[in-house]
Simulated assay, not measured.
Amino acid sequence: MIAARRTPIPDVWLLEPRVFGDARGFFLESYNQRDFEAATGRQANFVQDNHSRSQRGVLRGLHYQIHQPQGKLIRVIEGRIFDVTVNLRRSSPHFGCWTGVVLSAENRHQLWIPEGFAHGFLVLSETADVLYKATDYYAPEHERCLAWDDPTVGVDWPLAGNQPLLSAKDQAGRALAECEVFD
């Protein structure tokens, strides 16, 4: 069983798997379809698993696919990140709102992000290995990038006065007002 907590944005869930530990180590179910559906009220057909490794200060995102949108189940198996999602569903009362949580190998929490959201994260540890399940395949022709520092969204990244390390794609992210969004 997993414990599930709503974030300030409905449909985005923080999931806490049950961990069985003793002197030998620990065991947890990283994914159980029945428990996921009971916790979130959603059926998800995951078709792709992704793994990224990044160093401290790397900021990846805020990414989304305008066609073939992806729901994502995010977890960290090494290190610590600040994980952010932004609601890009124009019909939602939470359009343009963001939420952020710390995911780490220590807390073993997971974040469920449904389709219609941009996603990104900032690495807080020396390195971080992030795994995520996706409900649709990666389609680079449909990938879009919301500017990580768009003032209208106002994500409060824990940068401690440092500039993040960004890819060229992330440096070219667009303001929310210029982004293609979902109905």
Rank of each mutant, 00 (worst) to 15 (best):
R34Y: 04
P17D: 04
A39G: 15
F26H: 13
F26D: 08
Q33R: 15
H63F: 01
R6G: 07
R6W: 15
F27S: 03
L62T: 07
A39L: 12
D35G: 15
F36L: 14
Y64I: 01
S54I: 08
H63E: 04
A23I: 08
A39Q: 13
L14C: 06
L15N: 12
V19T: 11
F36M: 09
V58T: 02
Q65V: 00
H51A: 01
A39F: 13
R60C: 06
T7P: 04
L62P: 09
Q55K: 05
R5V: 13
A23S: 15
I9P: 10
Q43W: 11
Q55M: 10
L14F: 07
D35A: 15
G61R: 01
P17R: 08
F26G: 06
N32H: 14
F20V: 03
S30D: 06
G25N: 09
R6P: 15
P17W: 03
Q33F: 06
V58P: 00
F46G: 06
P17L: 10
N32L: 07
L59V: 02
N50W: 00
L62Y: 03
F20H: 08
R34N: 11
D11K: 13
L14H: 05
R5T: 15
Y31H: 12
V12T: 11
D35W: 15
V58M: 02
A23G: 10
A44E: 13
G57M: 13
G41N: 14
